[in-house]
């Protein structure tokens, strides 16, 4: 649910029911990396309520559009994580080699 004003669509608060840090922090991460966003943050008004409020302020674009893009970015990232993971599991079942910890700065 969106709480905002019609005069200024660039800043809004969104209430997500039945959600917690899991989604809210991921969305905050995705929003923060969007150059259109000037501020975003989330809060859980009461730990006993399954509700998070996500505040989005943008440079001018409608906050709901920016939020929607962020959530969709997150979805694409999830899909990529899943594909990569599945491939890695298949690879390890085939070869079983360890290449990790080759760390570059």
């Amino acid at each position: 649910m969106e709480h905002g004003s019609i005069k200024d669509s660039s800043s809004s608060t969104f209430s997500f029911a039945d959600e917690d840090h899991t989604l809210a922090n991921s969305v905050r991460f995705a929003l923060n990396q969007d150059p259109r966003v000037t501020f975003c943050g989330y809060s859980i008004p009461h730990p006993a309520d399954a509700l998070v409020n996500i505040r989005v302020q943008t440079t001018g674009a409608p906050a709901s559009e920016v939020l929607k893009d962020a959530v969709q970015d997150l979805m694409v990232m999830c899909q990529h994580v899943r594909d990569t993971f599945d491939k890695a599991v298949v690879d390890s079942k085939v070869s079983g080699s360890v290449k990790a910890m080759k760390i570059k700065p």
Partner: peptide, 23 residues
């Protein structure tokens, strides 16, 4: 792990549709 990623995906999907209907 695959199931966990799917859960996050479905959360995203669910909320995009909510935001979209709001719009």
């Amino acid at each position: 792990f695959t199931e966990a990623v799917k859960v996050l995906e479905s959360k995203c999907e669910q909320h995009t549709s909510v935001i979209w209907t709001d719009l």
